[in-house]
Write a protein that binds this DNA or RNA. Structure first.
Lengths: 232, 232
DNA sequence: CATTTACTAAACGCTTCCGTACAGTAATAA
DNA sequence: TTATTACTGTACGGAAGCGTTTAGTAAATG
């Protein structure tokens, strides 16, 4: 996506090698992608067809074929575009603002905000429907999404162990437990359209309670159990 | 589904009221449903068409229309059929074999076995794709699935509170936390085809660790912390 | 028996989409 | 300028599915 130079490192600045004729219009490319995303967003995969995309993007059908070989190819590109958004959002999660508890809560809140957002749910639904047809997409997103987040969270816990804020424990396991508690049955419910989006209050409570449960479970041998207590 | 008598209680035995002509062949009905399920199972919604179903079920296309008005109607019925299977499976979850810990672990193992099974994942994927088109299906399955399970688990915890095995706490919250920890990022991964099915060992470990975390969090003021300790 | 209902097979007209082809216009490099 | 490439609009042949119709057969009731 952000590396259009497949051969090697750019010699100096952008390659001044213009290919002879009329240059391809990147605007169109983006418009097609956006239209495809929007179409899927409001109608699922079934309403995603080359012709519909061309119509919505105000672009000739042939142009769509020129930019994306196939319908599966288009879907692939749409998912990959969503992937970069997702990865960016996950990378942008707050690292370590204050104390451990606050850091975890902040992390959890931002994460849940993302996980319960329409953007992510749409990506998820896309993948759920494409799991059979393009099996290599699932692992890709899973690795860069859930697994990466779990690893990030685990690393956060591990540094806390090194700082003596937590007893040694299986951080990867703890991270997954935390992720699980944060999500509960919420993300599933949203995915299948079974429940309304959660209010910020509900979300905050779930995140905080999860953090407190994990922290109290792995707190260092504490004389007073107030070290990680809730704020009043 | 199991109550084909919409008017009132059956007078005596089955209603001998046969409707005049040739009786409808329930075999066909079942065959169509089964074929539709199988088709979705191996190819997603896109391979689910009236004609394909008719072919697969060895049945005339007109018969399909006679039994199920529409393609959406057929999908609806397929999902509802899957629902009864799901509900049955969830009702069949073990109630209270032995001690609390063992009961929870048993419950969790059976549940996760179900949640990671192809049957359930297929239902989930169906719903994820139908969330837009038939919005009333989601809430139905969500209520009878996730919410019902959470309630059941919460009730289990509450009775333990009454028996003095646990400190009073928000059981519904705890139940959701437990469900979350059991699932972690696994169900999501499976849904999008991002990871292979978990081994029984992994599953057992996740379930046990979740149970232990919850139990230790809400254990009654314990002189010895052995009351809920792991077995060697 | 006649009547009524369920099912079949084949065909119908209609729509949508596929992927490709053609002729023409627009924008750029040499 | 010419050559080259990008894009447009339109059209094509083909496939597939929709939902309906028609004519005929099968199985039940009275």
């Amino acid at each position: 996506m952000s590396n259009p130079n497949p051969t090697s490192m750019p010699a100096a600045s952008d390659p001044p090698r213009r290919s002879r004729g009329r240059p391809p219009d990147e605007t169109k490319h983006a418009a097609i992608l956006a239209a495809a995303r929007a179409l899927f967003f409001s109608g699922g995969l079934q309403s995603l067809s080359i012709e519909a995309v061309a119509r919505a993007a105000q672009v000739s059908k042939v142009t769509v074929y020129a930019h994306f070989t196939d319908l599966p190819g288009l879907i692939r590109k749409v998912i990959l575009a969503q992937r970069t958004d997702m990865t960016a959002a996950l990378e942008g999660l707050p690292k370590t603002p204050g104390g451990l508890r606050q850091a975890l809560i902040e992390f959890g809140l931002c994460l849940m905000d993302f996980l319960t957002g329409d953007e992510f749910l749409t990506l998820q639904r896309m993948l759920a429907t494409q799991a059979g047809q393009q099996p290599w997409l699932g692992p890709l997103i899973y690795r860069e999404g859930a697994e990466a987040t779990r690893a990030k969270l685990a690393r956060l816990l591990e540094t806390s162990v090194e700082h003596g804020d937590l007893r040694p424990h299986d951080s990867l396991q703890a991270a997954e437990q935390l992720l699980g508690m944060w999500q509960g049955i919420q993300t599933t419910g949203l995915l299948i359209g079974g429940c309304p989006p959660p209010t910020p209050e509900v979300l905050r409570r779930r995140v905080e309670c999860g953090v407190d449960l994990i922290l109290s479970a792995h707190a260092p041998a504490s004389p007073a159990e107030d070290s990680v207590s809730r704020d009043p």
